[in-house]
């Protein structure tokens, strides 16, 4: 029976259950935003907000779209994103996987789940970056104001025309990150326990 076929100790199992529970608000109830974009302009000193959830976009969409049409940017609408149709389900799957790994106490299942989760996250971040790129590059050539193409910031601050834009992760992403980090933590704890056991035996 190799390492992958092994089981967890009680403490580590609890941590994996915790990872599943932490995912809960993000996947069962898409109530926590995963990403925010805040925009300020001289006429909007109070700021306009875009908040991305796993299943929709909320915030000052109508206002932002009306302003964006001057530079020929496509209207941002939730219905354009097929991601919203599978993102909550995919995250649900990963959460269930973590729960199963803990309940069945199978190390291989936990590691597989974590690897899929990591891969999925990388793909989704790349997808998001692709959207940002396309919004700033796929500009209507008939637009009244012709801007050089641009990419809104993925994370952090940028100045675009008369707008200042700040992009930052929401609570959803923070929780997802925490759940993800529990994977390496479990591995680390196990290794330390194994070392201690070996030291005690010798």
């Amino acid at each position: 029976m190799g390492y992958l076929g092994g089981a967890f100790s009680t403490a580590e199992r609890r941590l994996i259950v915790l990872a599943a529970l932490v995912l809960l608000p993000v996947f069962f109830l898409p109530v926590l935003p995963v990403w925010h974009m805040k925009l300020w302009a001289p006429q909007y000193r109070e700021g306009l907000t875009l908040s991305i959830y796993t299943n929709t976009i909320r915030g000052d969409l109508v206002k932002i779209n009306t302003l964006n049409h001057y530079v020929g940017m496509k209207a941002i609408t939730a219905s354009d994103f097929r991601e919203f149709t599978y993102l909550p389900q995919a995250l649900t799957g990963l959460g269930v996987c973590a729960l199963l790994a803990a309940l069945l106490n199978r190390r291989w299942l936990a590691i597989l789940g974590w690897l899929v989760f990591t891969g999925f996250a990388v793909v989704m971040f790349a997808d998001y970056a692709q959207w940002l790129y396309s919004y700033g590059h796929d500009l209507n050539p008939r637009a009244a104001i012709k801007l050089p193409t641009f990419t809104p910031p993925f994370i952090g601050y940028a100045k675009m025309a008369n707008f200042k834009v700040l992009s930052f992760p929401g609570m959803g992403t923070v929780l997802l990150g925490l759940a993800w980090a529990l994977g390496p933590i479990v591995v680390l704890l196990e290794r330390r326990a194994a070392r201690r056991k070996a030291a005690a035996a010798s």
Partner: peptide, 9 residues
């Protein structure tokens, strides 16, 4: 077409 695109929800 342009107005429809602008008003898309």
């Amino acid at each position: 077409e342009e107005v429809i695109a602008l008003l898309k929800k």
